[in-house]
Design a protein around this nucleic acid. Structure first.
Lengths: 132, 132
DNA sequence: TATAAACCTTCCCATCATGGCAAGGTCAAG
DNA sequence: CTTGACCTTGCCATGATGGGAAGGTTTATA
């Protein structure tokens, strides 16, 4: 298979497949006489694995670890679970931060009349004025 | 005031102040004979405004709009509120997405024993196997 | 068979907001 | 006058991705 076919079959763009190869996430693949990258079904499986992990928000570094464990038949599932739980914790932190922002902005917006007049507690808040 | 003082007083790094100037978020400031950027208290106010907006997660493009409205004494607060509510909507979307990821990862993690054995529903899920 | 379309290659650039570093000029205090 | 703190510009890096150019290859079609 050429890279375009693998891209279509895996859901990972050709651009990213080359990038993953370059950064060592996947090994260098063999080339045709003319220099085209050649792939087989195993590569498609690996790339699908990567894509699903990306879809779940795992960083490339995490995916690197997950791939290693995936390919290690003797891995303890404990290590995989640790990575996943760590990711959940990071997501929780991100979510908490966004919610905090959201509430702050929403609060300010709630104070603003949103009419033709220039008075605006949002701008006042941003400029540091505590209250009218 | 030199840039370092303004940075300290505004909470915006000198690096970012130069960047904001370069990208037009703030105007070019006057220079001393030796080429040093010179600022006054008004600049500190503006930079504090920018920093607070950044802290609330507004993008530079949004801040550009907010700054323009802030400096327009005849603005209708409606426009400010619209930007804020739009930002809230974007934050809500981001939050929803992260929560969805979080739940998916957490679900997979919950299926995994996390012990010495290699069986791992997390890896199975990533590799596309529906179930054992 | 000739040619065009579709594909592949590498290389460079851009994102977004931020930091780091380096080489060199300036200023203030000792 | 030296030292150290500060300023300047400029380049590089981030993380994961896309865009595009310039040029070689393969395949399909006229």
């Amino acid at each position: 298979m050429n890279i375009g076919t693998v891209a279509g079959n895996s859901g990972v763009s050709a651009k990213m497949i080359r990038y993953y190869e370059e950064t060592g996430l996947i090994p260098h693949t063999r080339r045709s006489d003319s220099g085209y990258r050649k792939y087989d079904q195993t590569d498609v499986h690996t790339l699908r694995f990567i894509r699903r992990a990306r879809d779940l928000g795992f960083s490339m570094e995490r995916i690197r670890e997950l791939l290693k464990l995936w390919q290690d038949r003797g891995r303890p599932s404990r290590e995989v679970k640790a990575i996943a739980l760590n990711h959940v914790a990071e997501l929780d932190a991100d979510i908490a931060k966004l919610i905090s922002l959201r509430n702050a902005v929403s609060h300010l917006a709630g104070l603003c009349h949103g009419d033709d007049h220039p008075e605006c507690p949002i701008l006042d808040g941003l400029s540091g004025e505590v209250a009218g």
